[in-house]
Design a protein around this nucleic acid. Structure first.
Length: 567
RNA sequence: UGGCGUGUCGUCCAGUGGCAGGACAGCUGACUCUGGAUCAGCCGACGGGGGUUCGAAUCCUCCCACGCCAACCA
């Protein structure tokens, strides 16, 4: 903006700064985010949204939201609404600039007529297969269709009759008369219009011919006076055509710039693949918390701030890349660590009786809500003779470096006392350990003078009488392999679906303060991870929590290393 | 194969003729009433060959690899 050097900027921003200096668009910056409403937005779209809206913000420009809705067979209002909701949720505002390519159909039709009159477009009646054949290959030039040289009058007449519905689907198409010998396949007389007797979710039955992407996108940008039309790499070949249409129609000409789309490890990122997972029931829907969709991430417990921070950190460039999902998770933890209230929840309860604690006494202990944020305050936590701890926090035969509870060992209960394990009680039939007998040391109460000795471990716990039961859903990566698409054939990626991407735990015990947690509210379950109240299935009295992401787990690493050492 | 595009630590991104840097991941250690967080440190890369230059990731050249394009999808 203010003439600073362009180093450190990504290549798109560098170019915008340059265009600003040369006055290419009178210093204007106007971008747009142009999804097709044929599916839900995913984290890859978030990258594009952050880029387009972000640039508009940074350079004092504007960013439009536009539905690229030229294919009536796939698009719907449901998707439009979902897209608007997701963009807004991410924190961006298109003001009064919500546009639809379908609003430009009349104008587009006129421009098509103009091209016909210029001798730059013709009505072809070759079949789909024939057109493919005539187009040639990457090494051989295309051949002209026998209909390529119809008279302008005949083209005009035929095109109008196409519009009027006098022909069946596929019978005729309108093609640009460009360059059949072009080494760029996109220039070999691309289709401009096809016949589809199908009603459109917005224009209804007004049209039975619909413009193709290439004959729509650039002109839509032009109508909206977009300066920089930012799109993904696969449209690089289309740029020549983008320019050609604008020049032939002789209208305002934005600059198309392409960048590499986001690929994220351990998931898939094409709308087609995601649709497939939804339709085949591999997941619960577009907003299944395992999906990389914006709605899935939202339901999983991701914050818009975390997603935006991620989009900033991955940068923008032209090389195809695969971002490690660990970076997304890092951005999430970084955000939630600052803001999430710490609470205690026991996922797999193990009963502990503190034998020397009075039968009916209940103490209300002070518990800090968030050590990262003093203003979060504190709450009271009930403590009593019978509590639950995590099953995995006890080992009868503790391995090396296991700092938790074991026979004869002492640990601290977070916000409470030291307890020492005196005895483990087994179920006679199963042999399973079902209860621990412990003693506590009254001199070790949290916040009071230290008893002069230390313990290595601190456990989370809940008071049995006061705990609230809840369902907890543990989510993990959707795919077991970083790049399911490349490590498999066309349809084989599904064999890498993670069978453990969802584990449902019932009968979890959470502290009483959680009983009135609201849908979407997020917490850190101490020592375990970040969790949010499921916005679809959780009800008062029947709480459901989703694990958004686990905490860094050093012990798990140590244990894994120990096990692999043993072979 | 024709065209377009891209090659820098394991991963992502900087560096645009002058000591190759950051982030994530990994590994050490310090600290800790979360094995969290935080802090300190370590590991680690210019696709290859030739050339220009005092000096090349950067310029030239050849090669190699990868991606995209032969949809009436976008």
């Amino acid at each position: 903006m203010n003439g600073e050097e362009s180093t450190g900027l990504d290549f798109i921003r560098a170019r915008i700064v340059r265009d600003g200096k040369t006055g290419k668009y009178d210093g204007r910056v106007h971008t747009r985010f142009p999804p097709e409403p044929n599916g839900y937005l995913h984290i890859g779209h978030a990258k594009s949204i952050c880029l387009n809206f972000g640039i508009a913000d940074e350079y004092n420009g504007l960013c439009n939201l536009r539905m690229d809705d030229t294919d009536p067979s796939k698009e719907s209002m449901e998707y439009v609404e979902a897209i608007k909701r997701d963009v807004r949720w991410l924190g961006f505002d298109w003001g009064d600039r919500m546009y639809y390519a379908s609003d430009y159909f009349d104008q587009l039709y006129e421009w098509a007529v103009k091209l016909i009159k210029k001798g730059k477009a013709y009505v072809d009646q070759l079949s789909e297969e024939e057109i493919r054949e005539y187009r040639g290959t990457v090494t051989e030039p295309g051949r002209p269709s026998p209909y390529r040289d119809r008279s302008i009058e005949e083209n005009l007449d035929l095109f109008e009759r196409m519009k009027n519905g006098e022909f069946a689907d596929g019978e005729l198409v309108l093609r640009a008369k460009a360059d059949l010998a072009s080494p760029n396949m996109k220039m070999r007389d691309p289709l401009m219009y096809r016949i589809r007797h199908m009603s459109h979710y917005r224009t209804g039955d007004k049209w039975c011919i619909y413009p193709m992407y290439d004959f729509t996108h650039g002109q839509s940008d032009s109508i909206e006076k977009i300066t920089h039309s930012i799109c993904t790499l696969e449209f690089e070949n289309n740029r020549e055509l983008y320019d050609w249409f604008l020049d032939e129609i002789e209208i305002y000409h934005p600059q198309q710039i392409e960048f590499a789309r986001l690929n994220l490890s351990h998931t898939v990122m094409s709308k087609r693949r995601l649709l497939e997972l939804v339709e085949e029931g591999c997941v619960d829907g577009w907003d299944d918390p395992r999906m990389p969709t914006i709605s899935g991430l939202r339901r999983r417990g991701y914050s818009p701030e975390a997603i935006r921070a991620f989009c900033d950190r991955i940068g923008v460039a032209k090389r195809e890349s695969m971002v490690d999902i660990a970076l997304l998770e890092h951005c999430l933890r970084e955000d939630l660590n600052r803001r999430a209230m710490r609470v205690m929840a026991v996922l797999r309860p193990l009963k502990v009786v503190i034998e020397n604690y009075p039968e009916d006494e209940v103490e209300m202990l002070d518990a800090v809500n968030n050590p990262e944020s003093e203003s979060a305050g504190s709450r009271k936590l009930p403590f009593s003779r019978v509590i639950y701890i995590e099953q995995e926090d006890f080992r009868e035969y503790p391995p090396k470096k296991f700092f938790r509870l074991a026979p004869g060992r002492e640990v601290r209960l977070k916000h409470g006392y030291f307890i020492k394990c005196e005895k483990a009680i087994r179920d006679e039939k199963s042999g399973e350990i079902i209860e621990l007998r412990c003693t506590y040391d009254p001199k070790t109460k949290s916040g009071e003078a230290p008893a002069g000795r230390k313990v290595k471990g601190t456990l989370h716990w809940v008071s049995a009488d006061h705990a609230v039961s809840a369902e907890v859903r543990l989510y993990d990566h959707l795919f077991t392999t970083p790049d399911p698409m490349s490590e498999s054939g066309e349809e084989d990626h599904k064999k890498y679906l993670n069978p453990r991407s969802l584990e449902v735990l019932e009968g979890c015990m959470v502290e009483p303060s959680l009983s009135d947690a609201r849908p979407g509210e997020y917490f850190q379950f101490l020592r375990q991870g970040y969790f949010c109240v499921d916005s679809r299935d959780s009800k008062p009295g029947a709480l459901v929590f989703n694990r958004t992401v686990g905490l860094r787990d050093t012990w798990a690493k140590i244990e894994k290393a120990q096990q692999s050492k043993k072979g």
